[in-house]
């Protein structure tokens, strides 16, 4: 026989990472297919169907544009709309990945009780779903960017870096919360509020330069500050992001991935009895 599996009692601690990574890699198509089918089925009942993937972020951006215009007492112009859109689209990718990721283990209980596979695939697949939903909104942003007369430069390509970092950060957080949610089921109820406050604390509805005085600490304690800040600098303003933002963003992303992966891997074998 080719392979021998030995199952011994569950201990808190990491599994052997080599074989785990191989199992994960062997099933990468599964995560992708799970994400694809999720996208395919989610809007099947609605009249506008997949168009909602584009309409949702667009309408949301207008809602926040109106809100900030009223609060600041001025229309703010197309540049602000572009900034809000770029930030909001990326933020909603992040928040749907994290909220969905937090539920990913619990909502797949049938699959988990019937098939042995690396559970890390579930939050990863949810992050992929959110990412696939996010991609079409980049197209809308491009149109608004040009209409708003924002500069089109090669420097905009820097945007790939914060985008990749947000992807990593969201994956880490999704894995962490998916695990935490099994032990404290309140997590998922708190999450939408947390995410909303997090939006207001991040440079989406306001510009990174606007934090001054007592709020300056946000730059260092809010991981999304450097991530979304550098995204906006690159994509909206068309210039190379500040180095400290990329550095801090990368540090947060790696930290989240390590903590999230450790949390999930060290508890994963116990999941089946916790569902």
């Amino acid at each position: 026989m080719s392979d021998v599996q030995v199952y011994t009692p569950f201990r808190r601690g990491l599994p052997r990472l080599g074989p785990y990574a191989r199992e994960l890699w062997a099933r990468r198509q599964f995560a992708l297919e799970l994400a694809r089918t999720e996208i395919r089925t989610e809007n099947t009942g609605t009249g506008l169907g997949q168009l909602w993937l584009v309409l949702n972020p667009l309408l949301l951006a207008f809602v926040y544009y109106v809100l900030t215009s009223i609060l600041s007492g001025s229309a703010g112009g197309a540049a602000r709309l572009a900034h809000i859109m770029a930030g909001l689209f990326l933020y909603y990718f992040f928040s749907s990945a994290v909220i969905g990721g937090a539920m990913s283990i619990l909502s797949s209980s049938r699959l988990i009780l019937n098939t042995a596979f690396p559970k890390m695939l579930l939050p990863i697949s949810v992050v992929l779903v959110s990412f696939m939903r996010f991609l079409p909104s980049l197209g809308i942003y491009a149109v608004v960017h040009v209409l708003a007369g924002q500069p089109v430069t090669w420097q905009m390509l820097w945007g790939v870096v914060p985008l990749a970092l947000v992807l990593v950060f969201a994956t880490g957080l999704a894995m962490l919360l998916a695990t935490v949610n099994l032990y404290f089921r309140d997590t998922k109820s708190f999450l939408p509020y947390t995410m909303r406050v997090w939006l207001y604390l991040s440079p989406v509805l306001w510009l990174p330069e606007q934090v001054r005085g007592s709020l300056a600490f946000l730059r260092w304690v809010n991981p999304l500050f450097p991530l979304l800040g550098s995204w906006s600098e690159a994509v909206v303003e068309g210039r190379a992001p500040q180095a400290w933002m990329l550095g801090a963003g990368a540090a947060w992303a790696v930290l989240a991935l390590l903590v999230g992966a450790w949390a999930l891997l060290s508890r994963e074998r116990e999941f089946a009895v916790r569902l």
Partner: peptide
């Protein structure tokens, strides 16, 4: 799918 609490399982 379920880890043993005690003992050992060997599957070929």
């Amino acid at each position: 799918i379920l880890p043993p609490t005690q003992g050992r399982i060997e599957v070929h």
